[in-house]
Nucleic acid binder design. Structure first.
Length: 468
DNA sequence: CTATGGCACGGATT
DNA sequence: AATCCGTGCCATAG
């Protein structure tokens, strides 16, 4: 009699609620684990790998929505759908492998794709497979650990060709990709900045000659070696820290800041991917919400039928429980997807300019407003938004919560003002400049934002300009 | 004396 | 209820 408590039917209603909530707040990876767990303990749950169009549910040969559906939604601002794929990041093998890793076209690494798209124009068609091979051998941080001679052997490509492809890869969007380590990655990123900038060339020298010391934060030694002041050393170091990324594959997280608790060692694969079908600014955005698994979950129809056929029997009770639980789980999953879809639809329509054109165009909005519009509790939105990341068309991966950052556009304006200034402006002057632009904030607040963005105070900026 | 950063308070948001 | 954010006041560095 006591065992019945375990799976008795009574708590179903509450369980439903509890599960819906707990699924919503999960990111892709956690959800995946959760689904796998459920799948392995519940025989009534079934994973269908059949490819169907996420919009019209018709069968398809490949992933993504079918051309017809895309065609018919072309005049919409955005096509939002839950994609029956897992997000792209797969565990990456370390260590030596002699054979070429198979190029799984069915499960594309979207980082690789992102890079290839940019490379398409400038790369010789015959170099393409080489690029693919290189991209698929990168480790989590985007480094190429295999030494060059090794690559020459496995690919049987001439050294120079290899080098030119590597060179090309390291200079497209996540800059510094496919370099052997942080030092080279940083150098590659510096290559892309104006070389006549004294800070840039100084940073280069620093990396080339005193990398070791930089790791130890031995400012005195660095200063001595390069024959510059310690202050300059600090400034250059700050510049590197603010503007460059030693781990290219970890790409842009937030504004590149955040050495705090938020475990910067994990490269988050996005939970949502936004792409644009054409370069054309008018063309609709494709918003792909990754479901945790490839394929779809459903209640096993065979088991359902079996239960109907023999309503009695020793197993029927157990089956019934399994079926209940399975259908509950599927419902929760659907609800999660549904909420995410609605959320993204609103978000994308509202913040289109932010997504395409950058931080300045973020319209301030609160979770509460969104919740109102969709008709859910605001805590629901909170949960849906937290711990999720989203990949923008330009390849940046940002936390979804950034959409609700009220000060982002102002901070961006400040960056712009400082960049354009001829003579260093004090915080008060910046504040009044902002006031002219229609943004009213206190002087003190300008200072806060400035420090968040890692911009030095006016007094110290002066030195830089003089040096320039 | 001025520009900036620290601390802390109140109000909004989660 | 807890947290985050903008701001005012004040000390301090330059």
């Amino acid at each position: 009699m006591f065992q019945i408590q375990d799976h008795s039917l009574r708590p179903v209603a509450t369980a439903h609620l509890a599960q819906t909530m707990s699924l919503l707040e999960l990111g892709n990876l956690e959800l995946r684990e959760r689904v796998l767990e459920e799948l392995s303990t519940n025989p009534a749950l079934e994973l269908v790998e059949e490819r169907v169009c996420p919009l019209c549910q018709r069968r398809l040969p490949g992933p993504g929505p079918c051309p017809r559906c895309i065609q018919s939604s072309l005049d919409e601002e955005a096509i939002v759908f839950v994609s029956p794929r897992d997000s792209y990041r797969k565990p990456i093998r370390r260590g030596g492998h002699d054979e070429m890793p198979e190029l799984e076209p069915a499960a594309p690494e979207s980082l690789a794709i992102h890079v290839l798209q940019q490379l398409a124009a400038e790369l010789d068609p015959e170099d393409r497979p080489l690029a693919v091979y290189i991209l698929s051998s990168l480790d989590e941080d985007g480094f190429l650990q295999e030494p060059l001679p090794y690559l020459v052997r496995t690919t049987r490509a001439p050294m120079e060709q290899l080098q030119s492809v590597l060179e090309a890869i390291s200079h497209v969007d996540p800059p510094g990709l496919a370099t052997p380590g942080p030092r080279k990655a940083l150098l590659a990123q510096l290559d892309m900045l104006p070389s006549d900038d004294p800070t840039v060339s100084l940073a280069k020298r620093m990396l080339e000659e005193t990398f070791q010391l930089m790791g130890q934060k031995d400012y005195a030694q660095i200063a001595k070696h390069l024959k510059i002041s310690q202050k300059t050393v600090r400034q250059t170091l700050a510049f590197i820290q603010e503007n460059l990324n030693p781990y290219p594959a970890r790409a842009f997280w937030g504004s590149g800041r955040g050495p705090q608790s938020g475990d910067p060692n994990v490269y988050h694969s996005p939970d949502i991917l936004i792409t644009q079908r054409a370069e054309d600014a008018e063309s609709p955005l494709m918003v792909e919400i990754f479901s945790a698994m490839r394929g779809w979950l459903r209640v096993n129809p065979l088991l359902k039928k079996a239960l109907k056929d023999q309503a009695e029997g020793p197993q029927s009770e157990e089956w019934k429980e399994h079926l209940e639980r399975a259908s509950l789980f599927v419902k929760c999953l659907q609800q999660r997807n549904n909420t995410m879809r609605q959320l993204m639809q609103l978000l994308v329509n509202e913040q289109r300019r932010f997504i395409l054109e950058g931080d300045r165009h973020l319209k301030p909005m609160t979770r509460a407003e969104l919740a109102e519009e969709i008709g859910v509790h605001e805590s629901t939105i909170s949960r849906a938004v937290s711990s999720k990341s989203i990949a923008l068309p330009d390849g940046r991966i940002i936390p979804l919560a950034k959409f609700f950052d009220r000060s982002l556009s102002v901070r961006d304006r400040i960056k712009e003002i400082v960049k354009k200034e001829t003579t260093p402006l004090t915080d008060a002057q910046i504040a009044s400049e902002l006031h002219d632009q229609g943004v009213d904030i206190a002087r003190r607040t300008v200072a806060k934002y400035r420090s968040i963005e890692g911009i030095l105070p006016a007094r110290l900026r002066k030195r830089e300009k003089v040096a320039a």
